[in-house]
């Protein structure tokens, strides 16, 4: 069966100006599949500059890959035209980080919900449109009478963000890209938004790509995870495996640095090799080598392949070179749904 979404060896390189030779590899040879019949929540995690937002932008078709292809239902998304393009725009939706920036402050929030209905001709009448809006708002736990007719500044960040989720839901998408949807929302409201996302996945069968640097929330909503570091996949697999038993030194550092709201789980003692010592970093080998306490000679020579460290866990690290190698193209097989 054709996957819903497929990344085939996607690389994105940003170049600086016409003359400069400086280039940044924001995403390096990533292959990924989301199946249509198995809705899942996949977390793409990493620190700033890891390429996670680049992945979202590529997936939404806002930028084009330097190498490789992104296929939606088997078709290259850069080549979609006419009806197919509209379907893609409708079926792939996004929720962004800042719950305020996406609203036009001069319109009531109704505007954000009625425009997609008009654009995609989702309703034949006003009352049908209203019904759809009510249904979408209820699905994210909002009472329509509480929010409709209000201006964005009259609502809390959590309400605004849930309206964004409701807007995406209106279009009955197949895939939702959520880029840091709760990072600007109060802790007490995060739970509600994450719960809405998970319900979309379970009840409406929508696959979600949850992009975040917050592994605590990722652990709670996702089925699987891909950890990126400077554009490359460091570790991937089942969320339980990766969070509870990370293998790659970078993931270990990351997990160790999570401030769990748990008084008995103290912040780790893994020493942090400062990032600023990265100058003159080696692009030929493993990107983490300059910060890695276990770095060996070969780490600096060629990037490590993905090694299978558990049935549903791979790590790109020579520490595990006794384990079988997993082709980059087969990464998705390691991700439970």
């Amino acid at each position: 069966m054709t996957p819903l979404l497929e990344f085939r060896n996607v690389t994105k390189i940003y170049t600086k100006g016409l003359l400069s030779r400086a280039a940044t590899t924001a995403l390096d040879d990533v292959s990924l599949k989301i199946e249509d019949d198995q809705p899942t929540i996949l977390t793409v995690a990493g620190e700033s500059g890891s390429g996670k937002t680049t992945l979202a932008m590529l997936l939404l078709g806002f930028i084009t890959p330097t190498r490789g292809h992104i296929l939606y239902k088997g078709k290259d998304i850069t080549k979609l035209r006419g009806e197919e393009k509209i379907t893609f725009r409708k079926e792939v939706q996004a929720v962004f980080q800042d719950p305020f920036a996406v609203f036009n402050p001069f319109y009531t929030v109704d505007h954000l919900l009625t425009v997609p209905i008009e654009k995609f001709k989702l309703a034949r009448s006003r009352s049908e449109a209203r019904d759809k809006i009510d249904e979408a708002l209820s699905a994210v736990g909002l009472r329509p009478e509480d929010v409709l007719g209000r201006f964005p500044h009259q609502l809390s960040g959590g309400q605004r963000q849930r309206i964004n989720v409701a807007r995406a839901l209106l279009l009955k998408p197949r895939l939702l890209v959520a880029d840091e949807p709760v990072s600007m929302v109060d802790a007490s409201l995060r739970a509600t938004i994450l719960e809405s996302l998970r319900n979309l996945n379970r009840e409406y069968g929508i696959s979600i790509i949850y992009i975040t640097h917050d592994l605590t929330t990722a652990y709670h909503v996702a089925n699987s995870i891909i950890v990126l570091y400077r554009g490359s996949v460091m570790e991937a697999g089942s969320i339980d495996r990766v969070i509870r038993d990370p293998q790659h030194p970078y993931t270990r550092l990351l997990i160790d640095s999570i401030p769990w709201p748990d008084i008995n789980r103290k912040w780790g003692q893994t020493e942090i090799v400062a990032r600023e010592q990265e100058h003159g970093s080696i692009e030929t080998g493993c990107k983490f080598a300059s910060r890695c306490p276990f770095a060996m000679d070969k780490c600096r020579q060629a990037p490590p392949p993905l090694y299978q460290v558990a049935p549903q866990q791979v790590a790109a690290c020579y520490l595990y070179d006794q384990q079988p190698v997993v082709e980059r193209e087969r990464l998705s097989e390691m991700l439970p749904v």
């Binding site: 007490s188 739970a191 605590t216 769990w260 709201p261």
Partner: peptide, 19 residues
């Protein structure tokens, strides 16, 4: 209490308790 209970920890996976 509600604030503390709304927090995601390693042990209460998948439990969402907003205020």
């Amino acid at each position: 209490r509600a604030l503390i209970e709304s927090l995601p920890t390693l042990d209460n996976k998948g439990v969402f308790k907003g205020i």
